[in-house]
Each structure stands twice: as structure tokens, then as C-alpha cells.
Design a protein around this nucleic acid. Structure first.
Lengths: 151, 151
DNA sequence: TATTTTTAAAGAATATTATTCTATTTTAGT
DNA sequence: ACTAAAATAGAATAATATTCTTTAAAAATA
């Protein structure tokens, strides 16, 4: 990753649909080197994928909730079981095993409070080994950045 | 948003680089209606943007941390001040104002613990009005889904 | 039910972009 | 300075996006 590569991933983070030609123009190069650099960045895994970013509210997902989950038992088998179960739920879009005041942080999307309650009562809380669940409801999305702070 | 539109955004969430032609083939339509539907979804804001997804570890960001931030004063002016300040930090990739046990949840990327400590001590904790900061370090990314649970 | 109006889709033509290939230049190592 | 490797330019080709015209389907109205 040299300076040119960093410029390329910066531009692609901002707009995944930017053309090779446009990147080339901005960096004062021709399409060939840009094309090959992009392919290399993809091949070597610096660029994992390209995605369309949807507006969750427009598609009807009014609620975004973070849950701090604490388990009872922490042996590997129990963790693996929980992780496998939680992945099945489409409402759960992110799940992290964390070191801190609780065990897992999960991000959930729901259409409304009723659906969230249904998820909580009938899905999450129904899993074995759950000790405590603490919900934080998102009121405002202050920042949701496109850019990783590329060192 | 009819059935076809939902199929389109589903495919675009999975792969933002999928061609109009390929979507058309999968949905047994020609390129024209797909092209127009995609443009409409973009124009009306269902699709907000397209982005390249980078591998944070490959680009040197070993640490991912969530912080629960609690403020002292909660009048609008103080909240706005904090929100404005926190947005400046490139390390902070997400920030949400939440209702729950604390005020703000922020997601941070850092190269290593040293850089994180520097961020915490010299940037975050230096802001006025901070009452409490609780860090949770991500050990495992159990799930990081491409797909919103489209209703 | 027949008729009009609107919307969606097909098919063909054109414009743009991605991709490949060959030749040239630059860079790093000896 | 010389050699080898890597990077880039420029041109040619392939694939895709985009536009345009025509046709079909659906919805609304009388």
C-alpha cells in the first residue's frame, strides 16, 4: 500500500461506483495502472467487497437498538453455542464478542417497538445461558462514517 | 417497493458491483426495467450510496473499540457541542445518541493500544462535559451482516 | 364492458467503461 | 552504469450502461 493505493481506497470508500477512468483522472494516471492496482487490492483482500448502502428508515426499519448481553457460563462451548444461535436472527446485523463490562454487543434493526419486543422476548431471551440483556435505543445517528481512518 | 425492487436491493446489498445485466438475468427481465428501477431506488433514496468495504486489519487497524459515554449536562446546547466535537475525530467511525444506561455509543478504530490510549486520554477525555467513559474491546466479530432485514 | 390513460417492459442502437495487449519508461538492486 | 523487475502509457477490443422507440400490460374512467 503506497500513497497511490491509499488514494484509491479512499476514493472507493467514498463512492464504490467511481469509475477507473475517473480515479485515473484525479490521480493523474491512465486507466491501466489504476485498473491493475484496484484488482490487486481486491485480490489481496484490502478491498473485501462492494455494497449498496440502504436507507433503513425508508425500507421500514424505524428502530435501531444496541444490546449488551451478559452470559451465565463462559466456557468455549457455551460461547460457540450462543454465537451460532445469534447469527441465525436476521434482526441482528452485527454481533461482537467484547472484553469489558459485558460479553456481547449486538446491533439490531426492527420495524417498530412491537417487533423489537417480540425479538427480545421470543428470540433473544429464549436462548439458554443468557444472564442479562441491556437495551440502548438509538435516538440520533450522530456519525456513521464511510471512511476508516487509514493510517 | 414491490417484490422486484426488494429482490434488486437484496442483490445490491450482497454485491454492489453486480451488473444490471446480471440482475436482469436472475429476475428474468431485460436490462431496461432493471436499469430504471435501480435509478429510481437511487433517486428516491432507498439506496443511499455504494461503498467499497475495506479489511480494517489489513490496512493496519488492529483495534476496534466501543465506548459508552455519559455526559454531565444534558441540555441541547451541551449535546450539540459534544456531537460536533466527536465528529471531528477520524478514529470515531460511528456515534449514536442513545436512550438507555448511558448517553452515547461510539465505535472507534485504532492501530494499536497505544494509539487508542492516546485517543482516549488526549482527545475524548479532554472534551468538556464528559462524566464517564466505559470501553469495550472487540475480541471477535461474530457477525457483521451485509443485509438489512428487509420487511 | 369498452375505451382511455398510465405504467412497465422489450428490443435495438449508441455511448461509455472495463479489460487486454504491446511498447515504453521508471525504479531498485548490484 | 548496468541489469532486472515493476509500473505506466497508449491503443485496441470486449462488455456494460444508457438511451430511444415500440409494444404490452395494468389501472382508471365512462
Amino acid at each position: 500500500m503506497d500513497k497511490i493505493d491509499r488514494s484509491i481506497v479512499y476514493l472507493l470508500q467514498k463512492d464504490g461506483k467511481i469509475t477507473i477512468k475517473e480515479i485515473a483522472e484525479r490521480l493523474n494516471l491512465t486507466t491501466t495502472p489504476i485498473f491493475e492496482r484496484v484488482k490487486k487490492l481486491e485480490r489481496e483482500g484490502y478491498i473485501k467487497s462492494y455494497k449498496a448502502i440502504l436507507d433503513r428508515k425508508k425500507i421500514g426499519l424505524q428502530l435501531m437498538v444496541f444490546c449488551n448481553v451478559t452470559l451465565n457460563l463462559h466456557q468455549t462451548d457455551y460461547l460457540k453455542k450462543f454465537e451460532k444461535d445469534i447469527q441465525q436472527f436476521p434482526e441482528v446485523v452485527e454481533c461482537y464478542h467484547v472484553a469489558g463490562m459485558f460479553d456481547y454487543l449486538i446491533k439490531i434493526y426492527a420495524e417498530d417497538m412491537e417487533r423489537y419486543q417480540d425479538f427480545l422476548s421470543n428470540k433473544l431471551a429464549s436462548l439458554e445461558n443468557i444472564s442479562k440483556v441491556q437495551s440502548s435505543f438509538v435516538m440520533t445517528e450522530v456519525k456513521d462514517s464511510t471512511y476508516l481512518p487509514i493510517p
